[in-house]
Nucleic acid binder design. Sequence first.
DNA 1: GTCAAGTGTCTTGACATCAAGATAGTGCGG
DNA 2: CCGCACTATCTTGATGTCAAGACACTTGAC
Lengths: 165, 165
Amino acid sequence: MEDEVDRLVAAWRRERPDLDVEPLEVLSRVSRLARHLDRARRIAFSEHQLEPWEFDVLTSLRRAGDPYQLSPGQLLTQTLVTSGTMTNRIDRLAKKSLVERLPDPSDRRGVLVRLTAEGRDRADQALAGLLAQERAILSELSRTQRGELAGLLRQLTAPFDNIPG
Amino acid sequence: MEDEVDRLVAAWRRERPDLDVEPLEVLSRVSRLARHLDRARRIAFSEHQLEPWEFDVLTSLRRAGDPYQLSPGQLLTQTLVTSGTMTNRIDRLAKKSLVERLPDPSDRRGVLVRLTAEGRDRADQALAGLLAQERAILSELSRTQRGELAGLLRQLTAPFDNIPG
DNA sequence: GTCAAGTGTCTTGACATCAAGATAGTGCGG
DNA sequence: CCGCACTATCTTGATGTCAAGACACTTGAC
């Protein structure tokens, strides 16, 4: 089955036959698929009255395990947003009583963000919904293909995640 | 090499051993990689005084071929943004003389957006820069692997691109 | 022809994000 | 124990995006 990137690549080959546009076959698909996923996630989370950005923060804390707390800095590396954005997100989640801010006992510059009981429940519920939806999207592929795809993507993400980049 | 998603998945398996989080191995990598790519693109385009969103619109028109014009509606399906966003983008690009708006001769509700000569040059320059950067990112993979990856991703994007979704 | 439903674009208002810089606290070298 | 570079978080101001709806025009049924 053809997709929009096939059409895009064909158009470039016609308009710019001098260029090798092979990289777009992979990376344009990654960008476009991520955009489709964002939309699908937004719809899936609306059943739980959660925005995607709220889910990202709450589940980062949920994964940290008891007592479900991380510093804003740790949340930055997990969610790939800037520090100003994270301050704003924590403010809004705190106003909704899904997280609370505590002073870091070992560094007076620092803060710890802790999940409330309600925040934890909401994160757990939304995660189950997300996994169901993602499973549907991935049903196009066999288990073996999913494993191959994950491995190939890991090779591309690893440099970003390990070098300070 | 391990990446952030490996750590994320391991954390879920510890915290929620009752759930099958295998879908995250693929789709969380797609989302995170797209975010890294956005950042890299922003930096690459800044050499040409272009924002990523400007590049997306200009190259859609560039690919259309002479006379380099499309309707706002056609641009929506290529760039995956809402109509309000596209109106705003066209306004700003027109103010910078990179595109111009023409009435559609065959439908009086409609408009055609046409690339100016300067817009075309800027798009061509930025494309070359983008391809160079993408090639560097993809150098982690062999040509064969890139082909496999593109094929697997196509299976996931095709349903989104072909069903009206 | 005419009316209703559909389509294409734009407007509005709320809001999330970013880059850059401010502020406060840490901790090492001497 | 002092000074200075570094780190962690927050503030600010500009901007891009979205959802929802308004408006003008088109199209098909009758």
